[in-house]
Design a protein around this nucleic acid. Structure first.
Length: 287
DNA sequence: TGCAGTGTTGCTTC
DNA sequence: CGAAGCAACACTGC
C-alpha cells in the first residue's frame, strides 16, 4: 500500500529519471477511470481530453502531496495520480498485464502505471488551481514538514477528541500521508492501544507518538518503502520496510519489545485491521 | 473449489 | 458536523 514513504520514494525516482523529459504520447487500458479534477466523476470520454492536453508537454516538476503524485507539465497543467492500494509507477521496465497507463517519452522509453485492482485515480488540473482541487485542499498538514511540530500535531489529533487513535492517525484531513502500516507501527512504538480515545492519551504518550511518527516515516523512506503488497519503486525493485515491522501483519508473533512477552493481536477498527501488542500498548479510554 | 480477506477514499445515510 | 457502512476492484490464501 503506497503511503507517504512509498509515494516519496516514487517521486524521488521520477525526479531522477523523467524530470525534463517530453511526453510524446500516452495510452491507457482503463475504461472509465479518469476523473475530471473538479467534479470527480467517472468519465470514459475524459481520456481523449487527457491525451490532448498531456501529449507533447514537458515534465517540469514532480512532487508529493499526501499520497498524491503531482506531475507538473510545461503547459501549466498538472497530472495528479493517487496510486491507492496496488498502484506503482515503472520506468523503462517490461510491460505487464497490470499496466493501465503508458507515457511514451522523448527518449523512446516508457513510464507506466501498474495497477492490479484498478483503484488508482488520475486527474488533470490547471497548476494554478491545484490548491483549490478537492483532492488537495481537504488534506491536513505534511507530517515530515519541518514546521509541523508537536503543538500542531496535538491540536490536529484533538480535533477528534473522542476518536479512536488508530482511525484518527489515518484520517488524511488531520495529518496527510499515514495509512494502515505506519499507523500500526507508530502505535506499537509509542505503546498506545489502537482503541485509545485521543483525549484520554496522556501528554507523554502523545509526545512519543509524535516522535515515532517522524522517525518511522523517515525510516520508511530510508528503507525504500514497504512492499508487503504490490509496491515497487520505479525501477521495479521492492522496498524493505516490510522487514522492519513490529506490529503490522505480525499476528501471533511474540512482541519484539524488550522484556515484553505479549503476542501480537489483530483487531478490526473502522473497517481495517489494527495489529498491536495487548501487553505493552496501553489503552487510554473511559471504563 | 469457493469465498473471505486485503485497504484507500469518497459517497451515502443517519 | 461526524461516524459508520459500503462500493470500487482483482487477486491471494485458506
Amino acid at each position: 500500500m503506497p503511503e507517504l514513504p512509498e509515494v516519496q520514494t516514487t517521486v524521488d525516482g521520477l525526479n531522477k529519471k523523467v524530470l525534463g523529459k517530453q511526453i510524446v504520447d500516452v495510452r491507457t487500458t482503463y475504461n472509465s477511470l479518469y476523473h475530471r479534477g473538479k467534479d470527480n466523476i467517472k468519465d470514459p470520454k475524459f481520456f481523449t481530453l487527457f491525451r490532448k492536453i498531456v501529449r507533447g508537454q514537458k515534465i517540469i516538476k514532480i512532487e508529493r502531496r499526501a499520497k498524491n503524485i503531482l506531475i507538473g507539465l510545461s503547459n501549466s497543467y498538472t497530472v495528479i495520480v493517487h496510486m491507492k492500494m496496488t498502484g506503482y509507477f515503472a520506468y523503462d521496465r517490461p510491460l505487464t498485464k497490470f499496466v493501465r497507463l503508458d507515457f511514451k517519452l522523448d527518449n523512446n522509453k516508457h513510464l507506466v502505471l501498474s495497477d492490479m485492482r484498478k483503484f488508482a485515480k488520475v486527474t488533470l488540473m490547471r497548476t494554478d488551481e491545484l490548491e483549490k482541487s478537492p483532492h488537495i485542499k481537504a488534506l491536513g498538514p505534511e507530517p515530515l514538514d519541518k514546521n509541523f511540530q508537536y503543538a500542531e500535531f496535538k491540536s490536529q489529533i484533538l480535533k477528534r477528541p473522542s476518536g479512536k487513535i488508530k482511525q484518527v492517525l489515518v484520517d488524511q484531513s488531520l495529518i496527510a500521508g499515514i495509512g494502515n502500516i505506519y499507523s500500526d507501527e507508530i502505535l506499537w512504538s509509542s505503546g498506545v492501544h489502537p482503541l485509545s480515545r485521543t483525549n484520554h492519551i496522556p501528554k507523554k504518550k502523545l509526545l512519543k507518538m509524535f516522535t515515532a511518527m517522524k522517525e518511522l516515516l523517515k525510516q520508511g523512506i530510508e528503507f525504500g518503502g514497504d512492499s508487503t503488497s504490490d509496491y515497487r519503486n520505479i525501477e521495479g525493485e521492492k522496498g524493505n520496510f516490510q522487514n522492519q515491522h513490529k506490529a503490522y501483519h505480525q499476528t501471533g508473533r511474540v512482541c519484539l519489545k524488550k522484556k515484553c512477552d505479549g503476542v501480537i493481536k489483530r483487531l478490526v477498527v473502522g473497517a481495517r485491521s489494527a495489529h498491536f501488542c495487548p501487553v505493552h500498548q496501553e489503552l487510554f479510554a473511559d471504563r
